[in-house]
């Protein structure tokens, strides 16, 4: 029943998104603009500044994620449908997981565009170790979205939610972003230190476990009031 509910909520969110295409388009537009601006700043005569590509990729993902999180819950607030979800006779943590899965799919779709774009504009060898890259992106996005979904749901009734979400989210997810940037930067080196990449990946998995556990544990009491 738990996963059935989570999948139901995720499917509903995706159906709404397919109809409006609002979040995917705005998120992509924002993230691509961000990458283009950085490309103008950091690429001089075909030369890229240090590990800029890794940092810019994760900045674009985190900015896009914040935008997507805010809009997803703004939709639920608009017609107060979040209250209808909370009223349903299901575990509220299943609703959290459903919302999280929806956000993750949107962010993964955005990453399908962002990663090749960064690789192209910054001449970055992001695809030299595709499995490790996918692992870093998946684990990093999960950690970021796990905390973000909880905070966005909590702030849905706050008057200054648009300001508060990044203010709360970025300090908490700094370890995820650092691990993502350092792991991805290692992939850009001519001789990839695989052991170090695996270390950053392990760190990301550890963050994911902690953040997911805390979010599942706190979602119900936080949403009741």
């Amino acid at each position: 029943m738990f996963f059935r509910t989570a999948l139901l909520v995720m499917r509903k969110d995706l159906t709404v998104e397919v109809r409006s295409r609002e979040i995917l388009y705005t998120t992509l537009f924002f993230a691509v603009s961000c990458i283009l601006v950085f490309a103008f700043a950091f690429v001089k005569e075909g030369e890229v500044l240090g590990d800029a590509a890794a940092g810019i990729l994760w900045i674009a993902i985190s900015f896009a994620g914040t935008l997507a999180l805010g809009r997803t819950f703004e939709r639920e607030r608009h017609a107060e449908t979040l209250r209808a979800l909370m009223l349903a006779p299901v575990e509220r943590s299943a609703i959290y997981v459903g919302k999280l899965l929806g956000i993750l799919l949107l962010l993964f779709a955005a990453e399908l565009v962002l990663v090749p774009l960064v690789a192209l504009l910054f001449s970055a060898a992001l695809f030299s170790r595709p499995v490790l890259l996918v692992g870093l992106l998946a684990a990093g996005t999960l950690g970021f979205a796990a905390v973000g979904t909880l905070f966005a749901a909590m702030l849905v009734r706050a008057r200054s939610r648009d300001v508060l979400l990044p203010v709360l989210l970025y300090p908490i997810t700094i370890p995820v972003i650092i691990a993502g940037v350092r792991g991805t930067a290692l992939l850009l080196q001519p001789n990839v230190d695989q052991a170090m990449v695996v270390m950053w990946l392990s760190l990301l998995f550890a963050f994911d476990v902690v953040f997911l556990t805390l979010s599942l544990w706190t979602f119900e009491p936080l949403m009741t009031d």
């Binding site: 509903k12 159906t15 709404v16 109809r19 409006s20 608009h78 017609a79 107060e80 449908t81 209250r83 209808a84 009223l87």
Partner: peptide, 9 residues
């Protein structure tokens, strides 16, 4: 008072 319906659906 709010109707708890998804307008896009």
């Amino acid at each position: 008072h709010d109707l708890y319906l998804y307008p896009e659906l």
